[in-house]
Write a protein that binds this DNA or RNA. Structure first.
Length: 342
DNA sequence: AAGACGGGGTT
DNA sequence: AACCCAGTCTT
């Protein structure tokens, strides 16, 4: 049975009933707050975003205050959330809007799309939530719902899939109520049309769902790419003079760009080719990332090679009590906590 | 078109 | 361990 033209009504009714997730940015109309929430939400579960959203807004209630803030402060607030390029782009866009665009958010899809850190999803989200413009959001939830609804074998992570599902999402949307419709379909995906164990009988669309009628719901969506996890070995040289540690900011296109760490030697395995006195109680920490598994070895170094290493690595001398002002990867924080630096 | 990018929660 | 998350940018 194909979808009746009342489908958006039943979805919005489902959303109004009792199923609406209660999140701090719901029904927010300030473009700044909507934008901030959407950047935080990229590839991140809503529940994980809540404390970051509240914390950042408390420090920076307006985009002008965010734009005027010290970068380091913003990274510090972002610490732990991941995907740090979002934070860099957040800063760039805040400055552009505040300083080059009179503090005004673009109020068109194209204008939003041109901003750093904003792609098709976020442009549609801000356009619909802030300006009630008829652009359909296509996030992971929407890909899953439509793939199941149509039992589509088109891989969602292909160029064809991107175009196909965007078109289908646009056709399905209630153009008169884009904001509420977009909220509703994402809530449906997050609470009912879940990746595993979906609650199909509670879904307002289950009678029209091809995957449900053929008992193939969990086969969709289809993905074509396989995840490859790379193993990496990070050897960290820890210089501690009794009052300070020596760290530096990561640069280049790699994980943890703009975050701080100790002097690093990366190798292909657990062996490190230089000879120095290794602290017998030196720690080893592992961190599992989506696409990499990091093993970090921490070596407490002798002071006699400090000067040479500072020059070689461009290390910055930071007093213990100031370490909290530097954003760092989780694995570094784990080390600092275990050794009572923080 | 394909890879890279974090960290945490579920299953 | 594999998969996913209110995706975007770089190569």
């Amino acid at each position: 049975m194909s979808l009746p033209n009342t489908h958006s009504k039943s979805l919005i009714q489902w959303h109004l009933a009792e199923n609406c997730r209660d999140l701090p940015w719901k029904s927010e109309k300030d473009p700044y707050k909507i934008w901030l929430s959407e950047i935080l939400l990229q590839q991140t579960k809503a529940e994980a975003v809540v404390p970051y959203y509240n914390k950042i807004l408390k420090h920076f209630p307006t985009i002008q205050l965010l734009a005027a803030a010290k970068e380091q402060k913003i990274f510090q607030l972002w610490q732990g959330l991941g995907y740090y390029s979002r934070c860099r782009n957040l800063i760039l866009t805040a400055k552009w809007i505040s300083e080059e665009n009179s503090g005004l958010f673009p109020n068109t899809y194209e204008g939003l799309l041109a901003l750093k850190g904003i792609g098709p999803y976020t442009a549609s989200a801000v356009a619909s939530f802030a300006f009630n413009l008829p652009y359909a959001v296509v996030d992971g939830n929407v890909y899953r719902i439509i793939a199941r609804l149509l039992a589509s074998a088109i891989p969602i992570d292909s160029a064809e899939g991107k175009k196909y599902f965007q078109e289908k999402a646009t056709a399905l949307m209630d153009k008169k109520n884009p904001a509420i419709y977009n909220q509703a379909i994402m809530d449906l995906g997050a609470t009912i049309c879940k990746p595993k164990n979906p609650l199909c009988l509670q879904c307002p669309w289950h009678k029209y769902c091809k995957a449900f009628s053929t008992k193939t719901v969990e086969k969709f969506p289809i993905k074509s790419k396989k995840l490859i996890i790379k193993k990496r070995h990070f050897h960290y040289l820890v210089f501690d003079d009794g009052k300070h540690l020596y760290i530096r900011k990561r640069i280049g296109n790699d994980i943890w760009k703009d975050l701080h760490e100790f002097a690093l030697i990366e190798t292909d395995d657990e062996k490190i080719g230089i000879s120095f006195d290794r602290n017998p109680s030196a720690s080893v920490f592992q961190q599992q990332l989506t696409h990499q598994k990091i093993t970090a070895y921490f070596y407490v170094m002798l002071q006699k090679v400090l000067r040479k290493t500072i020059t070689e690595y461009g290390l910055e001398k930071v007093a213990y009590e100031n370490l909290e002002n530097y954003a760092m990867p989780k694995v570094i924080l784990d080390f600092l906590h275990q050794n009572k630096y923080l």
